[in-house]
């Protein structure tokens, strides 16, 4: 049961921190509107997934250990990313199988770590948001959030409450966009072709805006759409839910 005013540690994620801080602020706004006290531990950097998925278990463990320490004591840890939340939730315990003391802490952290939108809906029982957007959006299900954390209905549910917004389902919404972390630069030809297929599906919906819950995927899809000259705007779902669309869409120049 959520406390009356739960203390939430925001895991900003390295991409949001570096590339698109407005997603972080949108997350803060949504969490605060839902009654959370939000704190941002200053010692956080990255969840360690790039190292982990590259087979560098030692660095992944070191980074994970720091995250475990930085986020001790919060009621919940929330990230505006299914990928990073999935890393902590699904994979941290596996990293410390032979280190019982950290394993216990990692498990405990995993248990209170959530992806932002599913946290709002599933834990805080948020049913609607107070925001408006006039247009047609489509939504891509980022793989980690979808398959590791079962994020599927929650964003659609909240988007349905955004005044003026209509959601057009994306065919193949559950198919990977080709980002895949370091995959996109290790196998650029495959990655780009996957992004091209995705862009084609997005264009076919006729939507004027593409949303998703993970910045890596969003950058990949925005980069492909824009290279092809598409005018479809690309945003993190939190920006729209928080009513913070004054920032230019991903990859678009400022006003």
């Amino acid at each position: 049961m959520p406390a009356a005013s739960p203390r939430v540690g925001l895991f900003v994620t390295c991409l949001v921190d570096l590339m698109r801080p407005s997603v972080g602020f949108a997350a803060v706004k949504l969490l605060e509107a839902a009654g959370c006290r939000v704190e941002v531990p200053a010692s956080q950097t990255c969840c360690g997934q790039p190292a982990y998925n590259s087979g560098d278990r030692r660095d992944a463990r070191d980074i994970a250990r720091a995250v475990v320490a930085a986020f001790a004591g919060f009621d919940y840890v929330v990230a505006p990313s299914g990928s990073c939340a999935g890393m902590i939730h699904e994979h941290y315990p596996a990293l410390f199988a032979d280190e019982p003391e950290t394993l216990a802490k990692a498990r405990e952290l995993a248990g209170r770590t959530h992806e932002l939108v599913s946290f709002l809906v599933d834990v805080l029982k948020v049913e609607r948001v107070d925001s408006a957007y006039s247009g047609v959006a489509t939504y891509h299900d980022s793989c980690s959030g979808l398959r590791e954390l079962k994020v599927k209905a929650q964003p659609r549910r909240l988007l349905a409450s955004v005044a003026g917004l209509s959601l057009k389902e994306l065919p193949g919404a559950e198919i990977c966009c080709g980002f895949g972390g370091t995959f996109c630069v290790k196998y650029p030809e495959i990655s780009e072709r996957m992004a091209a297929d995705k862009a084609e599906d997005v264009r076919a919906t006729g939507a004027d805006m593409l949303l998703a819950g993970d910045l890596g995927c969003l950058m990949n899809m925005a980069g492909k759409l824009q290279r092809d000259g598409s005018a479809i705007r690309v945003r993190h779902v939190a920006e729209v839910l928080a009513g913070m669309t004054e920032t230019p869409p991903i990859g678009e120049p400022g006003g």
């Binding site: 570096l18 590339m19 698109r20 996109c184 630069v185 290790k186 650029p188 990655s191 780009e192 992004a195 091209a196 950058m219 990949n220 925005a222 980069g223 492909k224 824009q226 290279r227 991903i250 990859g251």
Partner: peptide, 11 residues
């Protein structure tokens, strides 16, 4: 690898 077929959004 990235920019061969895609733009890269500016932070």
């Amino acid at each position: 690898g990235w920019t061969g077929g895609r733009d890269f959004p500016a932070p």
